[in-house]
Structure formats: C-alpha cells, structure tokens
C-alpha cells in the first residue's frame, strides 16, 4: 500500500467480517475491511503512580522524552522493539493496553545501566524497567520470573536464619520453578562431593541439610528486617490497589 500510515495499523486492528449487514448495506468480506480506532481516548493517571511506588520507578515523572535511554540501550541495539523511552511514555500517560503488548520483552533489560549514565534528567531508566517488570508480575500480566523466585527463597532464608544454606536454597528454588531436583548435573555433583570431600566437612554439610543452622541472637535483626519489608510491601500494595 503506498501510504506510510499502513505501517501504523496493527494486524489485529484490521477487522473483516464474514457476514455483516449495517443499515441494509452488506459490508461482508475483504473489500469491507474495518480499522479499529487508534485514538487515545483517556489518560489513566493511576498507572504512573503505581510504577513509581515500586523500587526503581520513583523518578519516572522526570522524563522529558529525549530518547537518550533508548539510544544508549544494549538490548535496543539487538531488538528495536525494546524501547524504554516509549514505555516510560506509555506508563506516564497510562496507556496500559499498549504497554501490555510488550510485556514479554520488558523483562529482557540486562541492567547494563548505560541509560542510567546517559539520562540527562536522572530518571534512572534501568530502575524503571525493573519496577515495570515487577509491576507486570504483581498485576498478574506476566508469570513470576525465575530470578524473582530465586530472590524470594534467598531472602526468606536470610530473614529466617541469618544464614544461607545452599542446598536448601537450590531445593526450594527448583521446587518453586517446578524443576526436578534429580538433574544429571546435580547427581554428578553430589557424587563427586561424596567422593572427594573430607568426612568431617561432609558430616557438617549433611547435618546442615536437615537442621537449619541459625545465627545466634538473630531474631531481633530478623524482626527489624521483616518489619521494614512489611512496611514497604504494604505501601506498594496500597499504591497498586488504589
């Protein structure tokens, strides 16, 4: 088609009807293709506030759309659809449907932070990408990412015991991401550990698998951390539900 606007029409917005009669006029078939409107008909003011309430998103309102983030973006160089400048705009104007079209690539930010150093307004686009990915998860638009699962089991363990016990972290991570524990590389690793580690160390490791070691006097530190986390979480929940 010789008009450049054709590129603006998304395939899903082209509507053809097998059989449709409007006011006695037959508009069936390919020759009566309709185009769904692209008009922005309202701003959703809640969306920016929601994402700004998540860690990293705080400065999104500073953006003046210069495009430095997109120009400096590592991922954009590979995938032109990865456009932080554009997403920041959609979020600020509350164009949720439009943002959701890209929900499966937003999380691909590699956190190289080139945008962070390029941004003249200190919007912290890398943080905004992270906040947006979390927002998509918490709103149920995307499943929890493996890295989110890992962060959760890791944090839970630290708060509970003050220590990291690797085998427990791995077991829980595998179970939450629905991966089998008996993976060939895992079996091979355990075999070699049994063969090569001194007996004393093996005994302590084995014991730790069943009895979780705990930092002495940890409970007050744990309570303080938990209180802070709950506080933040409640604040975020409030922002997300308003």
């Amino acid at each position: 088609m010789p008009i450049h606007e054709k590129s603006l029409i998304r395939p899903e917005n082209l509507k053809t009807h097998e059989e449709l009669v409007i006011d006695g006029v037959d508009v069936s078939g390919h020759w009566s293709t309709f185009i769904e409107s692209r008009v922005v008909s309202d701003y959703n003011e809640a969306m920016e506030d929601e994402i700004a309430a998540l860690p990293g998103g705080e400065n999104i309102h500073r953006c003046w759309q210069c495009g430095s983030c997109t120009n400096s973006c590592t991922v954009n160089a590979i995938n032109p659809d990865f456009n932080p400048r554009y997403w920041i705009y959609l979020i600020r104007m509350g164009m949720e449907d439009e943002l959701l079209r890209d929900k499966d690539i937003i999380w691909q930010c590699v956190s190289c932070n080139k945008c962070t150093y390029a941004c003249p307004r200190d919007v912290f686009p890398e943080g905004v990408m992270k906040a947006t990915a979390h927002w998509l998860e918490r709103k149920g638009h995307t499943p929890k990412s493996p890295s989110m699962h890992f962060d959760e089991v890791f944090t839970e363990q630290v708060i509970k015991t003050g220590k990291i016990e690797e085998s427990r972290t791995i077991r829980r991570f595998f179970s939450r991401t629905k991966q089998g524990l008996m993976q060939p590389w895992m079996i091979e690793m355990v075999k070699r550990l049994l063969r090569n580690l001194p007996v004393g160390l093996l005994t302590r490791m084995g014991l730790a698998t069943f009895v979780a070691p705990k930092t002495r006097g940890w409970s007050s530190a744990a309570a303080a951390m938990q209180e802070y986390i709950d506080e933040q979480h409640e604040k975020q929940e409030q922002a997300l539900s308003s």
Partner: peptide, 12 residues
C-alpha cells in the same frame, strides 16, 4: 495528535 506516539488523542 500525540506526536511522540504518533497517535490521535481525544481526551476529556
């Protein structure tokens, strides 16, 4: 027209 997203706007 919102020129940054190349879309018409009709906002109340």
């Amino acid at each position: 027209e919102d020129t940054l997203v190349k879309r018409p706007i009709t906002i109340p």
